[in-house]
Design a protein around this nucleic acid. Structure first.
Lengths: 144, 144
DNA sequence: AGACTGCATCCAGAATCCAGACTTACTAGG
DNA sequence: CCTAGTAAGTCTGGATTCTGGATGCAGTCT
């Protein structure tokens, strides 16, 4: 009889990381966002071992984040597309990228720049959907 | 002489994930955001093995994301605080949480609700710092 | 004192990751 | 026809990492 359970917090962060937190998963998703939908190209651009990448793609497809589409019949060939749920991971990629741009960019500045359709270089900011103000670490508290 | 190098893309996403992409790292950071700064509490709330958590905390401190502060002299006791760089990971946590809330919340809805200081429940949105508009998957392109 | 808490490390086995070779089926070049 | 090359994986065996006790240590609670 040790103390009562004290089971780990169930939390959306934890649940999300169970799906996309494994090594290479988010990099594979990044590649699809960049338009590289094919296996070989992904291995080249991410540096992931082919085996690991294959496993990751399988779990991402199973999780409904990617969709595997055949683009060639006879030598059966497939490419990976984002589902709606997958597309909604873009904010995650963008905030990771923003942090790296700020804290890890070397001399040459950020290695990859994105342009928002408003014409400016994209700097991703997280705001409160209700009031539109930026959200900083100290500006939230637990509800209820 | 195979084809030219074709080395993996250097990218802020990849670099950031090298620091915070290991298992449990982001959950440890989440705990610090929630105010749980002590080792044992973190193991309880995350479910991470003690050894693994200890290793993760070390790398996060080395990366300048957490700071280890002594709060007791004689039984030397430490707690972990976010550095400025660490605090700036809040957007990453929030976007992960938002995705999980949207796609993985069970019957009971999101397990943890945050309130923005504007008074509304926080729903995190990623916007373009320049124009303030939300950023969707299709609304960006590579610059240059 | 004895039980308990908080932090950390050691260990052995399990799971995962890794690099490179291999497979299969087709296309292109000579 | 023969040889290369490409694409999407799979196989293999070895390296690395993760995991869950057990252990230690120092102080607090009863």
């Amino acid at each position: 009889m040790t103390s009562p359970a004290a089971q780990p917090r169930t939390c959306s962060v934890a649940r999300t990381l169970e799906l996309v937190g494994e090594k290479w998963a988010l990099l594979a998703i990044r590649e699809v966002f960049l338009g590289n939908r094919r296996f070989d190209e992904m291995t080249r651009c991410t540096g992931a071992p082919r085996d690991t990448l294959a496993a990751r793609l399988r779990t991402l497809v199973a999780a409904g984040i990617l969709e595997r589409r055949q683009y060639s019949e006879h030598p059966a060939r497939f490419e990976y597309h984002l589902t709606e749920a997958g597309r909604e991971l873009y904010p995650v990629i963008l905030t990771l990228m923003r942090w790296g741009d700020t804290h890890l960019a070397g001399d040459g500045g950020p290695p990859l720049l994105l342009e928002h359709h408003c014409g400016h270089r994209l700097v991703a900011e997280v705001t409160c959907e209700a009031c539109g103000e930026p959200v900083a670490a100290g500006s939230t508290r637990r509800q209820r």
